[in-house]
Design a protein around this nucleic acid. Structure first.
Lengths: 142, 142
DNA sequence: AATAAAGTCTACTATTTCTATGTACTTTAT
DNA sequence: ATAAAGTACATAGAAATAGTAGACTTTATT
């Protein structure tokens, strides 16, 4: 399951993606609109900022805006920042690989091989879906 | 991430799948071979049994064996028993669907649509991979 | 019939991870 | 100078996961 952190991150990016040409948007406003606890959202936006996806401005009239085009922000990127690995087992992870403690022999492990396939399948979708796609889909009928 | 419960369940099923023609195997032996806490494994095997995947026999000489062919036990089934939903958001789940609390309008929700795609992708792999496949893969070179 | 070897069932505890909040600090516009 | 914002770090609270305990039932063996 996706953590709330990640869900909030995606929601915030979608909101900011709709706010492109406007002045930066305050945390408090995003929090209110999306029903996200403000202090929690602060942390999340900071993570996204430190990862290069957001631009922030301090002081009066400050706030957050996207630092990339919505077409160039993919779900994989966000998930990896907020939730970590995409794979369901650490030994099948590309970016957060580490050995499973109890594993005898990783090379022949059939479980690992199966979950590498699962990872590849979800990775494909997550790498093809951008914030722009999500915004676009909200305009369409179900 | 896969819970340890699920990982243990898969390992146990694989062991039992290799034990097909032999007499039932004791929990203690599976636990030892796979380095799984025995009492924890008891619960897991019980779940798998109650779901119809294992046959059990009490008393001296008792133990567990598969109640289906390894070819007919798919990863999806196991995950759903031990971990629950395959989807990453409840509103995109087939078997464990429920509304996301904070969701305004599910029908147009772009996040939901994206994660339905993700679910379909992983579901496909998980529904195509059986215990027999895992056993088969362990025999192959990396 | 007695015994020991197994699984069953329910409840509980411990640990970890996730979610959220609190406080003090920095930057910037007015 | 002041107020409006973000930044940083620490901590608390809640929920899920992992693991443990103990009493009970069934069955093979003697």
């Amino acid at each position: 399951m996706l953590s709330k952190k990640t869900k909030y991150a995606i929601k915030a990016l979608v909101v900011l993606g709709k706010n492109l040409s406007q002045p930066p948007m305050q945390i408090a406003r995003i929090a209110e609109e999306e029903h996200i606890p403000k202090k929690f959202l602060e942390q999340i936006l900071l993570d996204l900022r430190n990862a290069g996806y957001l631009y922030s401005k301090k002081g009066a009239g400050g706030g957050y805006s996207l630092n990339k085009n919505p077409e160039d922000i993919y779900l994989v990127d966000i998930l990896r920042i907020t939730d970590g690995p995409i794979a369901m087992v650490p030994c099948a992870s590309l970016k957060f690989y580490h050995k499973c403690e109890e594993c005898h022999d990783e090379v022949t492990c059939g479980i690992r091989k199966a979950f590498i396939d699962v990872r590849d399948a979800s990775l494909k979708v997550l790498s093809e879906t951008s914030i722009a796609d999500i915004i676009e889909r909200e305009k369409l009928p179900a």
